[in-house]
Design a protein around this nucleic acid. Structure first.
Length: 727
DNA sequence: ATTTTCGAGATTTTT
DNA sequence: TCTCGAAAAT
């Protein structure tokens, strides 16, 4: 019998309601993950539903792993948690099983960002384009947009289909088309493709769609407030047959609007599914009443939201403190002083987190912490699987498994085999003439004079040896073999960078643990596809360090003591959202601050400083003045002038322009495209417009001349497209 | 005309 | 810290 002690009435309701549509609006620290994991355990243990029929989707791998761990603790170690996964992880799973329905080979290659860049650099080389034209990031973004309409899938999936880059209207388009050719050649799918291929598969093969719809009897979705339309479409399709959809989220914590998260999906969930039962989890079990009061006071300033008031029954603590310093140096010193006081109270370094809006803010903190000898660690810099040495090491395995050019190019001359650029060019010419991959061509032309005195033959021997064992030998053994025989590990050792060597060792360990957890024999191809969709590095260490991270990175975490530093107008809220007058943007900033505040369990410090010099004088964040001043204390005197300045900035609009369009009108914006006026804000003299492009609401000034009205049947189409994701 | 230097400004990040 | 653009120096 599942133990439900320690759950409140609302949580128990969320856990034990079985069939139908449920929306849990779960405030910060209200035991949302607890409810979710217990519900999973309840479905398995009390209702007898097999884990393979329950899909639990999370936003990140980190969250998925945490969930798996907690589910295993409740249900038992042997519980198959492979369907506790991310959206992309699930798509990869579907495709691994059924991509043949699209006539695509099942040994498709999943391309991460560095892989995409390799393809692009090839194209840049070939077309003689310099990076000045556009960065790879820019092009990746353009590719994302290009893929939005999904028609490209038909080209990738049809071996006979052709596209013609030479007919492209712009250089950018030419690059994009070349990218498509490049990925088709290696059967590579980037992260977007994983979703779009799944949609295409479901559309083309209704029987496969039905198979999955029937298998997935229950769906649990975490962090639903950050769900994008695309992700929602997937969930919607999957829940069509069994109609058991349980979503958890907190609209006040939507902080990924800029990435496509659409708050409207959770807010209008009950309209989309009229039978929805909504459960509110309002009791916070994390923070002191003082911290919760501060959070409530701040978030009440947002207009677009579902009203809810969080409460805490924990022991009263101390009021949050706002520290105003005259310059960065004294801001840092103030923080250090408070850290030392916390240590005296019995806190450990690892109990403390420093949060900030933008990564660069951490710099001055770092500087002073180093000087003071305070141990700290910055979170969320490079990701493990994107590190060069890890990508290189895995490239040997990928080449053995898939034979793709990307992996080939990564490692052909690492370590040096006298296989530099001229020889690679030669290979490319061969491949262009005879077809086939670079590796195949090398293998077939090993006798060519150009490869005499190179390590090419040895390289081919190694890859062939690996290839022969791909289906019978464990990935960890193959990795060991590759690292040893290629000389790569030696190469890194000689390089002298201990971090890199450590990472290689870490990789070996990770692979071993992974294949052990898998249970049965883990084929290399499956392994590579699984880790490509992401993997948590589970390096959650218990070392006694202060953690420095952006607020985005802190989402879902909690700390006994939290410092939010750089509370300066222009940094937080960021100058961009201020300048653009986008009320929706500003509201997202405010939610972000709300997330920051609610990370703190006992102590909360908000710090900020004036700038040095007259020109770049910094003013305190407007958010500080939005919180009821009785709810926090202030240290340091803020000059009257600065307060006036901030309030003036925050007051916005002095222009008394009049409104020309009505609520519900469709309008066209030169940059954002079509949109509908959702509401009108007289105070700020803006229209709140929901744009079709990414569904985000942006505020546009009454006096902005770029806006024009368009006819109304377009607008009804827009509404429909949101509510009905028909395949 | 071309290179160099200097200073100001900076989102946020996953898959 | 990193990057980008404008002014200064060759």
């Amino acid at each position: 019998m599942l133990n439900l002690d320690g759950l409140n009435e609302k949580q128990i309701e969320a856990v034990t309601s079985i069939d139908g549509y449920f929306r849990v609006i779960a405030g910060a620290g209200s035991g949302k993950t607890k409810a979710l994991t217990h519900r999973y355990a309840y479905l398995v243990g009390e209702a007898g539903i097999p884990p393979r029929n329950i899909l639990c989707v999370t936003f990140t791998n980190k969250a998925a792993c945490e969930m798996k761990k907690r589910v295993k603790a409740l249900v038992g170690k042997d519980c198959d948690t492979s369907l506790i996964t991310t959206y992309h992880g699930f798509c990869a799973r579907v495709l691994r099983e059924d991509i043949s329905g699209l006539f695509y080979p099942e040994n498709f290659l999943i391309l991460d960002t560095p892989d995409q860049k390799v393809i692009l650099s090839e194209i840049y080389d070939r077309l003689n384009i310099s990076l000045d034209f556009a960065s790879y990031e820019d092009i990746c973004l353009a590719i994302d947009i290009y893929k939005d309409d999904q028609s490209y899938v038909d080209y990738l999936v049809d071996p006979k289909a052709e596209i013609h880059p030479e007919k492209a209207k712009s250089l950018k388009e030419k690059i994009i088309l070349n990218y498509l050719i490049g990925q088709k050649k290696i059967f590579g799918l980037d992260f977007n493709d994983l979703m779009y291929f799944t949609f295409a598969l479901f559309k083309k093969k209704p029987e496969i769609k039905q198979k999955w719809q029937e298998q997935i009897q229950y769906i649990l979705v975490d962090e639903f407030q950050d769900c994008s339309k695309r992700e929602y479409r997937l969930i919607n399709i999957l829940s069509e047959v069994n109609k058991n959809l349980f979503v958890v989220g907190d609209p006040d914590q939507t902080i990924y609007g800029w990435r496509g998260a659409d708050m409207k999906i959770i807010m209008d969930f009950d309209k989309k599914y009229p039978k929805t039962k909504t459960i509110m989890l309002n009791q916070n079990y994390r923070s002191t009443p003082e911290i919760i009061a501060t959070a409530n006071s701040l978030i009440a300033n947002n207009k677009i939201r579902i009203e809810k008031e969080l409460f805490s029954k924990l022991e009263p603590g101390v009021l949050p403190e706002h520290l105003h310093a005259t310059d960065e140096k004294s801001e840092a010193e103030g923080i250090i002083k408070r850290i030392k006081a916390l240590l005296n109270e019995g806190y450990r370094y690892s109990d403390i987190a420093i949060l900030y809006r933008a990564a660069y803010v951490s710099r001055f903190i770092e500087q002073y912490f180093t000087k003071e000898g305070i141990p700290f660690e910055i979170f969320g810099s490079l990701r493990f699987f994107e590190r060069m040495e890890i990508k290189d090491a895995l490239a040997f395995l990928r080449l053995a498994a898939f034979g793709d050019d990307i992996s080939f190019l990564r490692i052909i001359n690492k370590p040096r085999r006298r296989m530099g650029k001229p020889k690679v060019v030669y290979l490319k010419e061969l491949a262009a003439a005879h077809g086939g991959t670079l590796y195949e061509n090398l293998k077939n032309h090993l006798g060519d004079e150009i490869f005499a005195n190179t390590g090419a033959a040895q390289f081919v021997t190694l890859i062939e040896e690996l290839r022969a064992k791909v289906d019978s030998v464990n990935p960890s053994v193959l990795l060991q073999l590759a690292l040893l025989k290629s000389g790569y590990e030696e190469f890194i050792r000689k390089d002298g960078d201990m971090d890199r060597l450590d990472n290689i060792a870490e990789l070996k360990r990770t692979v071993e643990v992974y294949q052990e957890n898998y249970g049965e024999f883990l084929p290399l191809k499956v392994f590579l596809q699984q880790i490509a969709v992401g993997f948590d590095n589970e390096a959650d260490d218990k070392r006694n360090f202060i953690k420095l991270m952006t607020i985005h990175a802190a989402k879902g975490l909690e700390f006994p003591a939290v410092f939010v530093c750089g509370m300066t107008e222009g940094i937080f809220p960021s100058s961009r959202t201020i300048e653009e007058w986008f009320q929706a943007g500003l509201e997202e900033e405010r939610r972000l601050f709300y997330v920051a505040i609610t990370r703190a369990k006992n102590k909360l410090y908000l710090t900020e400083s004036e700038g040095i010099g007259a020109n770049n004088q910094k003013t305190p964040s407007r958010f500080l003045f939005e919180i009821n001043e009785n709810l926090y204390t202030r240290t340091g005197r803020i000059p009257e002038e600065l307060i006036r300045k901030t309030k003036k900035k925050a007051g916005i609009s002095n222009k008394a322009e009049t409104q020309t369009y009505q609520v519900g009108s469709s309008v066209l914006h030169p940059l954002f495209g079509e949109g509908i006026i959702e509401s009108i804000d007289d105070k700020y003299k803006v229209y709140n417009v929901r744009f079709k492009k990414n569904g985000a609401i942006k505020s546009i000034r009454f006096d902005y001349v770029g806006l024009s009205q368009i006819n109304n049947d377009t607008s009804s189409r827009l509404e429909e497209s949101f509510l009905n994701f028909n395949l």
